[in-house]
């Protein structure tokens, strides 16, 4: 989809400073991941990140009234079965808003951006919207691992605004291969494994890889499968690879990160990632990278940025941004 007249105005983050070392099973390498304190609940971190975003944008909580707040919902909430967006807005003191939560595997910030662009196109009275991704994996993962990814805690938010001239979206493309719907999920709490005492006490209420064969297939092919999505995003933005000055991206594992850079021949100096080292923050990762993009004052206005992320859930997306 080609997009016009929508820019990234600000970003906010709340990443705990406490870290813990996680040993990645595939390679045995150790990764430092951020670990939330007792008070840093998912919604508290999202609230703090949103307050930081508002401060940076020079806006107040009142400026979010009747605006959009979309949440990438793969992570657990303060309590289960709550609507994260509404809970965060309540903490912020925001009254009426447009807010919902959705899942698309564990890597959906560009899907949220696509949906937000659509909503703003359909409702001209709406000026802005936030994409949020709170993450907390201490209790709802297996040892802070998701396949080969080491999971960190934190929250990241990005504000998109109608008519904002800087970091303007040019295109967004999303794609799903439904065969991989069964790679990651929480088996407890649905129809097949009801949330009863036994599976909960046994530690089965966790988000983890279930279809290992599909996971391994994806790990080998996901970067290649991303290529046509990127090509379409570039085409719809009416630019080519040679026009891309910077790539803002996120990858679930260091191996996928390297595969991505190698596959598309992107030098390190042209890559902006989450800055989390080898740790992964699921949907928050690319939002953190957007925040780092906004901090880059050396990029000339008008330069072209490709945004994408490499997850492990059968969904791909890419966007083109003009600084």
């Amino acid at each position: 989809m080609r997009v016009s007249n929508l820019g990234i105005r600000a970003a906010g983050r709340c990443v705990p400073t406490t870290t813990r070392t996680v040993c990645r099973p595939g390679t045995g390498d150790e990764v430092a991941v951020s670990v939330a304190s007792r008070d840093q609940t998912p919604f508290a971190m999202a609230e703090q990140a949103t307050r930081e975003l508002l401060h940076r944008a020079g806006l107040t909580e009142g400026d979010l009234e009747r605006q959009y707040y979309l949440v990438c919902n793969e992570g657990p909430g303060d309590y289960l079965f709550q609507l994260a967006g509404r809970m965060i807005l309540d903490r912020l003191g925001v009254g009426r808003a447009y807010s919902y939560n959705f899942t698309q595997g564990g890597n959906s910030p560009l899907m949220a951006t696509y949906l937000l662009a659509c909503h703003l196109a359909a409702q001209p009275e709406i000026a802005r919207g936030i994409v949020a991704a709170p993450q907390h994996w201490e209790y709802h993962s297996v040892g802070r691992l998701l396949g080969d990814a080491a999971l960190g805690d934190g929250a990241a938010v990005v504000l998109f605004e109608r008519g904002w001239p800087r970091h303007a979206l040019q295109s967004i493309v999303t794609r799903t291969d439904g065969r991989f719907h069964d790679v990651v999920y929480n088996e407890v709490g649905g129809w097949r494994v009801p949330m009863t005492e036994e599976p909960c006490r046994a530690g089965r209420c966790v988000y983890r890889v279930h279809n290992t064969a599909h996971y391994e297939e994806l790990a080998k092919s996901t970067v290649d499968l991303l290529a046509p999505v990127i090509d379409q995003a570039l085409e719809e933005a009416r630019v080519g690879w040679s026009d891309v000055d910077q790539v803002v991206f996120d990858a679930a594992t260091p191996q996928l990160r390297q595969d991505f850079l190698d596959r598309f021949r992107i030098p390190e100096e042209r890559a902006i990632d989450s800055g989390m080292g080898g740790a992964w923050m699921c949907s928050a990762g690319l939002l953190l990278a957007f925040g780092r993009l906004l901090e880059r004052t050396d990029l000339r206005p008008g330069s072209t940025v490709l945004a994408t992320s490499v997850g492990i859930d059968g969904n791909w997306a890419a966007a083109v941004i003009r600084v």
Partner: peptide, 9 residues
């Protein structure tokens, strides 16, 4: 069927 899975997929 499960929590946080992709029924749409």
């Amino acid at each position: 069927d499960y929590l946080d899975w992709q029924m749409s997929g």
